[in-house]
């Protein structure tokens, strides 16, 4: 069975640059841009724990399992 992969999206418009997703992602999927907003840097690392989605106070993050497994 192929390893599950995930699509991670950050809505830049609603992100308030709090840094919570970056701090709590166990596999460092995110980095920051010039405004300190979260940017998806290494989506291939995502394990689908959804900690970022759960803890985002502004509902900017969407994690979806890729169906092409």
């Amino acid at each position: 069975m192929a390893k599950k992969t995930f699509m991670v999206e950050v809505n830049r418009k609603t992100c308030k640059a709090c840094g919570i997703c970056i701090a709590f992602c166990p596999v460092s999927v995110f980095t920051t841009d010039h405004d300190d907003k979260a940017v998806v840097d290494k989506p291939e690392r995502c394990t689908g724990c959804r900690q970022c989605e759960l803890l985002c106070p502004d509902y900017c993050i969407r994690v979806e399992e890729n169906s092409n497994g």
């Binding site: 308030k16 640059a17 709090c18 502004d58 509902y59």
Partner: peptide, 27 residues
């Protein structure tokens, strides 16, 4: 933003007034 937010929140009222990183949004 997940489907659950779209289902239960008044989307036209977002973004909320809470400060960056505030716990209220998580709750």
């Amino acid at each position: 933003m997940g489907a659950i937010h779209e289902k239960y929140l008044r989307m036209d009222k977002l973004p909320h007034i809470w400060c960056p990183g505030c716990g209220n949004g998580i709750i």
